[in-house]
Structure formats: structure tokens, C-alpha cells
Design a protein around this nucleic acid. Structure first.
Lengths: 269, 269, 269, 269
DNA sequence: AATGAATGAGGTTTCATTCAT
DNA sequence: TATGAATGAAACCTCATTCAT
């Protein structure tokens, strides 16, 4: 009898109820915000990347600053257990009861921190997408010269991060696929962000004259497909061991845009 | 990062340092923010690009829009909010969280003042039943002569009170119905008190000789049903406007016990 | 993940899927339809009384003509059990498991015949409202003369039907109250239909000259309130026994519109 | 009332006496009805007011709109509908009822032809995998010379087939991902078959001396990833139009193994 | 007096699968 | 071959209530 579902998405500018008394605010990454009140800090991953707006009524990811150090917060425990279960069973076969059991919390707690199963899953996707983008960005910033060096650094960082975090990688690349519109939207968003990063630096390489003009959009998506596919195989079967992927893959990619690679790439990485 | 040691758990809306009640938030560009409250939207260009943090207390455009100086007691605030929510959503669809939100108190506070949801609801019913009985009694006492005059005064007082307090009326006449034994008991009790009042004075009227003997118990309940039904319709649909009910209803009731009503009742009320 | 909720209420004129091959059609009452295919008959209570339209996608109340005589159909068993449970426990306290247990069917069967708990409940309300209206109409048709005779016959029929069917009466008059908008809508609809019936024949009585002009709309609602209230008391407490209500109530109502009642109504019923 | 003895359980849509497929219905006045099919709306003034029944066979305006002369076999109809539903909703959001509705068959029929939902889905995957492999093999066989020509022909054939069959492509590349072990097994199997095909002919090209030695296993998987990712994007968003993918992608892949591509692909991008 | 994170029993609803006809 | 009513396990989610602080 949910006669009155909460005012349903009330045109962002007509909120009627006090949500929070806000004291400070961090923009951690382009789609992650933390804001704080006198006593607590709230996290919020849900910036709509299209129109860059945030409706605070969406946030439930409260992070209590009070007892942060002594033991893992409930929210962290949930995320960790969810990572565990979702990555091994997939979205649909994962039951909330599984997560409850692993996290040693109550079912209600999940719904205190996340509005529903879908959003819990998407929080994991977001978390990992943010991590990877940060790693790639940092790797790029470490390269003094614009151009192919940066492209290579970014790719290496991405592969390395995938290699290091097998379970989140599985979630992003496998378990988030084929789940229907809302999930697909998020996946496209994440994927497009990476592709845009690569494209940007490929364009720089063209400007600098390191490689010849080419349709960098298609190249970026092709490269990502190549990377993803090898990572997926590794994640699912362990077959081409993580450390053996870059030595073959990176020169392959660079050659594909006619960038000359010296053929003694044994330690080229 | 935020290490705001709290000054002692201040009720969120009555602290002395409320900076802003924030409702929504846009990240327009990496160093430009807009945020809004119920009434206005603010812009903010000065995100510190290094650590990406913003202390809103440093901002110029912060505007304390509401002073929150409700000095009402917590118990009163709860009852008021409960009246609001229960009357509009009904008992089962009303969540304590709704009341908490409207009352600006904590969920625990409700349980400090009331043992449970049921008793909070019944407190409202009692409150209103007392009010109505008081009004009826006062109206009766203002009538010098025993008999029909008093009956009429009581009925008028009841209708008038219902008309004045639409939300409590809705709670008593609509939302308290069909909730099961404990609620039904209370409702019968309240209803029977009114019926007894009317019966008593009808009996007086018979004694005095104003009307002929009749089964006053049935009459009392029939009258109450008539009154209730019209009030309910008015409360739910607003249809027979409150002021138009008495002129037709009161003569109708009186005639039903063979009390002669002069037929020029345009303003007979 | 209900990514694609079934096309949501598709503007009545753009259905895309074949619902049923229809062969014949009965209009049983103003809001009840039966239609049939080669093999089966379907019932449908859900004519929207406002715009008089029916979307067949709404119907689930299938009545199989195949095995009608030998044993009660599953649908009937469900309705009977639901009547039992809803009338004694009320809507919210009634669990589907209760109904399952009483009806000796599986929980899935309920959802085969009714889209959800709400609609199962409303089917009972509809069923009884239809019955009562039919009884009243028949009683009226048995009266040769227009006017008060018909009014009295209708009222008697209504009271008598309430008296005969205590559980449905409880559902309509008690359990359906205070359940929120969709239920309230139905209740108002039913109530208004009765009130309109009474009003129509009161107006006739005025035309015929049996009673003097009066605001018949208010009278109709007042009368219904009186009737309902006494019936409710009887249903809930058994107190004024059903058979003793009419002898006092009917003359009371008639007198209230100045219709002379001979005062020897001992066996007037 | 309806006593239509049935002539032997005829599949609803292939009986010989389909009168009308009815979608919606208005009761305009007590003796006026409008009803509609997918294509048209009919009016009907002649409800028999006595027994309130309407036999549509007596109506003039009945119009048999569809003949339902699909002579496709039940199994084919199921597979077609399954392709439709699975590709648009994904495995989990697809209900067998959806497929039943689209295929115009009974739920039991599905279980006559397929042991369960999973195997029905996998049948589609198999069907398409076979098709694609056949196309690739045929393309290869049309090339007289071993080596890169054959590799290129195979890739072109695969891309072309994906482009031609968007829905099966979506099933294989998107909807079959992340469904758990049994599905993953099939997917790996299919994918590995393609990869092996490419690898085999790349090895030939090395033998022939067209390209230099390289880890062809990694290359094959990288290429497949590139192809898949662009196809997926096209399938999901339509963005890089199917016909524009090969001109950029094929040279890219060939260059990646140091096969010289003449740089005059004019409108390639 | 006040807080709000945590709980968990219990509800409704879904839907793949079966089987008598 | 075909049907579709019936099944029931299992899933997600709600929300009144508690209690350490």
C-alpha cells in the first residue's frame, strides 16, 4: 500500500525537506563527493555525469567519521563482502543473504547504506572505475613528455591495476555485462571515460608528430577491447598469466598505429 | 580528512552553528559549484584545486535562510508531525521515519515519549476525543433549559469542532477504522461516549415532554452515523462544504424524533 | 532488475499484444463484465466508472467454464478464504499465507487470478457492492408506485442484505476504511452509487408530492450514515440485533423528511 | 451462462473460428459498446437490454483483422520469439511468459522442445556461433592463397555477419556474459573456436613469410577483443555505424602484426 | 533527553517448472 | 503434440523497535 511514494523525484529545485546541514565539501574525483556535517562525513558517488547534478536525496552512503580507525565500518564491510559475492557468483546469483553472511551484518544494514541491490552493485563498479582512472591519470602525470610515452604509461597502469585487483576487474568486465539498461548505462559511461582518456593522448601524439593521423576514436575502442578481452580471459581462466600480457600486447597496440617498436621487447615493459 | 570533533551531540536543527541546509548540488566545472536550499541557489567558484576541499564556512555566499527557532517541546513536535502524517497517509502507510523527518527529531525520541507507534496514534485519537467532548459539554452547559435545546447545542458543537479540525477529524473518523481490536476498542469507547451524551439529553427531552418516547439508544447511534458520514465526505472530498451541512442536517435530525421544526430554517442554525 | 516493466499503462488505444479472442460478452452490472472465448468465460470487475473504459490487460479473474459444477473453482475458493480472513483480521493484518491455508491452494494461485493483494481485496468489495445494489434495485422494481414506497423498500433491502452477509458487510464498512487513496476511491464510488439511488427516489417522492422539497443529496448521505453506523455496531458488537434495527430506524428516517409515519410500527417491517 | 462445448482444445490463434482479437473495451452507455483491436475500434449499439448479453457473432461490425497463417513450426516460433526477448531484455529479465506471448504458443510447448530456460538460451548461442563459423570458413575457402588474405577474409566475414544479425550478436556478446559457469563455459568455447581459427591462419601467414613470428595466441585474443568491443558499441548504441568499422579496424589489426598496409584507404575513417 | 545505526522477522511478489488432460 | 492452471521455493525489501553512547 505504498500510497504515497516519497514525492517521486521532485524536480531538483523544489525540495521541501531539510536533508542535511552541510559544513564542508570535498570533490574527491569527478564523480565522487564527500560532504560533512558537524559530526559525520557523507560520501556520494552519484553525480550524474551528463548534467553534473547531484540530488542529495540519493545518497545513503554515509561514512561515520566517529569510529573510523579502530575497526572497519559497516559500510566497508558490506562493500567488501559484496565484492566477494558479486565477483564470484554474478549479480543475479548473488543473494543478499550471502553478503549478509560474509559481512557479518544484518540485512537491514545493507538497506541503511544502499537503497537497493542494484545500487550496491553499482557502487562497486564506480569505486573501481574511479580507482583505475586515478591510477591512469597518475601514471600519465609522471611522464614528462606528451605523446606516446603517456599513452603507453596509461595502458600499462590500466593493465597493472586490472592485474592487481582481480575481483573488481571481474565485476566491471564480466558481471556488469548483460544486466539491462541501468547497468549498461553505467558500463558505457565508465568505458567511455577510459576511451576518452586514451583518445586524448593519442591525439596529442599525432599533434606532436609521433604517429600519423588516424581515427583515434575507433582506435581507442579497439584497444580497449583488446585489453579487456585479454584481462577477461586471465580473470576467468588464469590462462595468459597477467605478467605475460603486457610484453606482447603493448607493442602490438603501438604498432597498430604505425609507431615503430624496436623488436627486442623482452623487457620492453 | 574531516576531523571536526563535536561539541556534544546537538539536535541537528537547534544547534547554534547551522551553516546551511543543503538540498542539491551541481558541479558545474571542476572549480565551480552551485548548491541550493529550499529557497535559493548559490554559486561558488573557489574550490581549492589542490586538495579539492571546500569549507563552506569560508564562502561568501553562504546565507542562513532559516533560523529554526521552534521552541515547541519535543513531545509537541512529535504529536504535531504525527497528526500531519497519520491524517494524510493513514496508520499503516505512515512510517515513523516520515514523522521523524517532519518533526526534526530523532527516531529514538519518539520512543522516549511513546511506548510504540500504536500508542502514539491512540494519543492523537484521545487528544481529539477529549477536545470534542469538552466542546460539547461546554455548549450544553451554556444552555439554560434542559431538553432539545441542549441536544441541538451539542450537535452543533460537534459539527463545528469537526469542521474546525479537519486533520484530527480524519484520524478519528477514517484512519482509526479497520485497524484491528485495540484500535477498535478505543474507537467504540469514544463513539459510545458521544452517543451516551446525546442519549442522556434526548431522554431529558422526553422527560420534559418536548418529544415523545422513543428508543433513544438507536436514535443516538443513527444520528452519530448521519453526522459522521457527512463530515467524512467533507473531510475526504470537501464536497458538501462544512458551512452547508448544519442547516439541512440539524432540522433533519430533530424532525426524525418528531420535534417540530419551523420551516424557515434558512439561517436556522 | 525489472528493467522493462510491462510497457506501463499503454494509452488505451495502442495495445500491442493479443489478449484474448473474444466470442461473447455480458454486461452483468454497470461495473461488472463477463466475456467469453470458445472455451472459457472471464469475469472483469474493473470498469473505470469515470471514463467507463476497460483495459483487458487488467483482468485476471478467469472463470473456467469447463469444470464449474463438480467442485468450487480455485478462484472461488480464494475469494471465500479472502472474505474470511480479511473480514476478521483486516487488510493489513491479513497475510496471504492465511488465505492460502484456508483456501487450500498455493500462494502462486492467488497471483494467477489477482494481480496483487490490493486487487484481491477490492474484488471482494466490488462483489458485495454489486450484490447490494442488485438487491436494492430488485426491491424497488417490486414496488408498483413511485415515491416513498420505493425508498422504503430500498432501505429495507439494504439493511436486510447487510444483516444476511455479515462478513462482506464488515469488509465494506470497516476493513476498507482508512487504507489510502486507491481503496478510498473505490469506497466513495460504492457509497455514492447507493446515495444516488436513494436520492433519485427521494426526488421522485417530492415530485409525486409525498414529501416536501428538501436537499435530497444531504439527506441521502445522512441516511446512509445512519444505516451504516447501526450496521457497523451490529457487525462489530452484535449489540442492536439485526432484526431490531429496521423497526426503529426506518420510521426515524421517514419522519426526518416529514413523511407521516403511523405510530404503531410494532411489526411494521 | 455460456455453454460452448469446445471442439477440441484448439491453439488459440490457429483455430478456424477466431472471431476477434479484442484489446480494449468501453461501455459508453448502457446499451452502447466500443471495443478495439490492434488496428481498429468498433462500435456496437445493440446490447440486448433484457439479459444484458452480447454475442459478437451476431454483430455486423466484426472484422477479422488477422489471419494468423504462420505455418512456421512451433520450435521455430519459440526460437524466434526467444531471440527477440532475450536480445532485448537479457537472460534474467526475460520471462518465459514473454516468449509465450510473442510466439503465440503455450508455456508447456517450450518444455516439449527444450529441457529448460537455460538450454533454450544456449540453443540460440549455438545457432549463431555455428552460423558465424560457417561464414568465416566459407570466406576463407574462397581465398586461393594461404596467409594474410585468408585472415583478412575471415575477419571481414565475422564483422559482416555481426553487422547483419544484430540481435544474435547482442545475445552472444552481451546477454551471455556474466551468467555463471554453464553459460561461461559455452561462451569460452565459442570464443576459443574463433580465436583458434584466426591463430591457425596467422601461423600460416608466418610460415608463408608474410609476417614475422609473434605470439599468435595473444594476438588472436587481442584482435577478437578489438572486434567484439566495436561491435558491442555498435549493437548497443549504433554509434560507429557498422559499415564504417572495417575500413579503420582491418588495417589497424594488420599493422599490429607488422603487415604493411598501403596508406591510401581514402574514405576509410 | 536525545541520537541514529543496527536489527531481523515477516511481508509480498516473481517465475521456472510440472502434469493432468 | 499441445495446453495452461497450479505449484512453491526463494528473492528483495520494509520498518517498528532497540540500545550503546
Amino acid at each position: 500500500m505504498p500510497e504515497q511514494r516519497n514525492k517521486k523525484a521532485p524536480g531538483r529545485s523544489r525540495g521541501t525537506t531539510v536533508i542535511e546541514t552541510l559544513h564542508y565539501l570535498w570533490i574527491l574525483t569527478p564523480n565522487q563527493i564527500a560532504y560533512g556535517t558537524e559530526r559525520r562525513t557523507f560520501l556520494c558517488y552519484t553525480i550524474n555525469s551528463t548534467d553534473q547534478s547531484v540530488d542529495l536525496r540519493d545518497r545513503r552512503m554515509i561514512h561515520s567519521a566517529d569510529k573510523c580507525s579502530d575497526q572497519k565500518s559497516t559500510r566497508e564491510r558490506i562493500l567488501e563482502a559484496a565484492l566477494d559475492i558479486f565477483s564470484s557468483k554474478g549479480y543475479h546469483d548473488a543473494r543478499l543473504d550471502d553478503i549478509v553472511e560474509v559481512a557479518h551484518i544484518s540485512k537491514g544494514s545493507i538497506y541503511f547504506y544502499f537503497p537497493n541491490k542494484e545500487r550496491l552493485f553499482l557502487a562497486l563498479v564506480d569505486q573501481f572505475a574511479d580507482l583505475i582512472e586515478r591510477r591512469a591519470t597518475e601514471a600519465i602525470e609522471r611522464q614528462p613528455r606528451a605523446g606516446i610515452d603517456r599513452v603507453r604509461a596509461a595502458i600499462m597502469a590500466v593493465i597493472e591495476t586490472f592485474g592487481k585487483y582481480r575481483r573488481p576487474a571481474k565485476i566491471l568486465l564480466v558481471q556488469a555485462v548483460g544486466l539491462g539498461a541501468p547497468f549498461e548505462k553505467k558500463r558505457l559511461e565508465v568505458t567511455d571515460r577510459f576511451a576518452a582518456l586514451i583518445k586524448r593522448h593519442l591525439d596529442e601524439a599525432i599533434t606532436v608528430g609521433e604517429i600519423q593521423p588516424i581515427d583515434t576514436a575507433v582506435v581507442a575502442h579497439a584497444w580497449m577491447g583488446a585489453i579487456y578481452n585479454l584481462v577477461i580471459r586471465w580473470v576467468m581462466t588464469g590462462d595468459p598469466p597477467a605478467e605475460r600480457i603486457p610484453p606482447t600486447l603493448v607493442p602490438l597496440l603501438l604498432r597498430s598505429v604505425n609507431y615503430p617498436v624496436e623488436e627486442k621487447q623482452g623487457n620492453a615493459v
